[in-house]
Design a protein around this nucleic acid. Structure first.
Lengths: 101, 101
DNA sequence: ACAATGGTACGATGTCAATCATACCTATAT
DNA sequence: ATATAGGTATGATTGACATCGTACCATTGT
């Protein structure tokens, strides 16, 4: 049985269904373009194992990339891709966080 | 224990994570404003019981409304609400269906 | 050298969501 | 009147997912 390949948009919307993952994307979207941050730096209320899980999903959805910095892995937003493929999406995510006005 | 209240945006994104539900929203978004359609008219590959389930979720997310027509229940898009609260969202959903160009 | 830090891998668990079958309701159509 | 069609309600099953603990790896800093 073939696993049903999920659409690109499906991956993105599923990834953003989780509040912890939205928090990451909102923080990156609010930060200056090109900002890199470690996974732990977002202060999500989950263990490290769960952190890895969430960032993997964001990566597979094409929303972020991660660069191996040896010591840590820097996560950054794939802003151009998102803005071209899903215009308006980042602003929608940001709108959930008034403090990122 | 209090059930964690999900955010408005969370409800919307969760609702749109499902391909069947996206299909409904895309069809309504493509149709002329104010278009009403019955649940079955979308031809989703699920049983009636599952249909009811999906439309309930779309309603709870605020994406559609349903009017009781006795015989059937007409579903229509809450376009103004969506466009005001989540600008660009409908176009993103539509972009998955090139035939709705 | 060694501890501390950021992260991954694996396995387990609990919860939630999508689906179905069945039974039932209401309105139109024959 | 009776069948047909659109829809709801309920309960069961199944799979996916968020989470954790534990063990482990690499790099930086002391």
């Amino acid at each position: 049985m073939e696993k049903k390949a999920e659409s690109e948009l499906g991956l993105v919307l599923s990834a953003l269904s989780d509040p912890n993952r939205r928090r990451v994307i909102a923080a990156l979207a609010h930060a200056p373009a090109g900002t890199e941050r470690t996974c732990v730096s977002f202060g999500l209320p989950v263990t490290k194992a769960t952190l890895t899980h969430h960032f993997k999903i964001l990566r597979q959805a094409g929303l972020i990339d991660q660069i191996d910095r040896g010591n840590s892995r820097a996560a950054f937003l794939r802003r151009e891709y998102i803005d071209e493929k899903f215009p308006g999406l980042l602003n929608i995510i940001l709108s959930e966080y008034p403090e990122y006005k």
